[in-house]
Amino acid sequence: MENKMYVSSSPHFRSNNSTRKIMLDVIIALIPASVVSVVFFGYRALMLIGVCIASCVLCEYISRKVMKRDTTIGDFSAVVTGLLLALNLPVAVNPLIAVFGSIVAIVVVKQMFGGIGMNFVNPALAARIVLLVSFPNAMMTWTDAFSKDVDAVASATPLVAESGAYSYVDLLLGAHGGSLGETCAIALILGGIYLNIRKVISPIIPCVYIASAGIMALIVGQDALYQILSGGLLLGAIFMATDYTTCPITKWGKVIYAVGCGVLTILLRTYSNMPEGVSFSIILMNILVPLIENITTPKAFGKVKAKGDKK
């Protein structure tokens, strides 16, 4: 037969899922939070989001070119990193600082370790921590929502403010100071529900993270609901801790990891000098992921000597 056939190993069917579709779903899930941030913090928020995404994609493109590897900007993972980085910045931050963050995220944390799927910590969070340590003032100057002049008016985030300064409704709606994407709990939860419906993430990590943070808050004598709804906890639990590359792939691994994140978040918030603990707790747990996976490898089907209908 002159007609050449494809010969390949089974299966000959593939699902129509793809890395790009997954990343697109994450972007869609982040749209409510992004829109809300623009509503609260104005065009400057939009500008920051644009700067972060553009610089991340550019960094990814250039570093792949320099390393003489196939370009991977088509999978949109750099867009997700850029968007998440932007949503973790205060609105008043200098765009150049944001660009520096993108370079750290993509070049140092992601590409130097081998690109998508190989980084051992979440790029956006690692970049945020680098910025926090390098530019503490800029990174902790919060602007109140709907304020006309971003540079002039500094406000306290709900975590720093006197307890009771914000009601739960305020926290749900998010019209207060904070990073771009972390203030509005409703928008974040909407995104989380979308990701679950699309089966992009499993509900284990967000639910266990939130639950363990709540319980830990009660243990240390904090207002659990207030702790959950304020700061970057929801953004972290739904979008950052669930990052595929840096969370365990085993079911029980996910549980252990999420408990660690939740407990550490509250401990850091309560006992460290930092007002916020989400980034550090997730990064710390990221580093433990290989260990967690090792001890939670599922037992292969039939590995027990089972016989009969025993319970």
Binding site: N17, T19, I22, T72, D75, S77, G115, I116, G117, M118, S202, Y244, T245, I249, T250, K251, T297, P298, K299, A300, F301, G302
Partner: peptide, 18 residues
């Protein structure tokens, strides 16, 4: 393309492998 460690293969495996 590169593995993104999504864990879908772990969820799909009827033999509970990774």
């Amino acid at each position: 393309s590169a593995c993104i460690r999504c864990g879908k293969c772990v969820d799909a495996c009827p033999m509970c492998l990774v």
